[in-house]
Amino acid sequence: MQDMNPTDVPGDSREVLLHLFDGTQRKVLITDEETPYPEGKLIVSRTDPEGRITHCNQSFVDMSGYEEDEIIGQPHALLRHPDMPAAAFKDLWETVKEGKKWHGYVKNLRKDGGYYWVYATVIPNVRNGEIVGYTSVRRKPSQKKIEDAISTYASMS
């Protein structure tokens, strides 16, 4: 996956090298700018079995800050924020590959270096007994749950 482009990130930012689940690395630029979760919306995407995005809805596009054609075909780790511990994603993949649902609170990284919190559910798409992909649905989390997640993830990093 390509490193983040400094021209996409306005204002002061910090550079962090992410070590991704597939063994690759990505240089990201982060800011402290939070984008509030849009009222009443769900952010929806689907991936292939390897985690590459095949579909996303308009809310996904709006919140990520990317254009749809910059998203499709990319690994889901495009949204990976360095404040999220690797163990959370390891747990996610191990759970869904067993054919089970995963849910948790996730801090996502935007194209502009900002972030947004979601409560995410990922479920395997099972067709004729085979996992053909995954559907992820995110909804608005409560402030208390976000604070709990910040404290839990800080102790895991």
Binding site: K101, T121, V122, I123, N125, R127, T135, S136, R139
Partner: peptide, 13 residues
């Protein structure tokens, strides 16, 4: 239809 069902399934979690 399966996609919509997966979505409902995810929401019901």
């Amino acid at each position: 239809m399966e996609f919509m069902i997966d979505l409902i399934d995810a929401l019901a979690a």
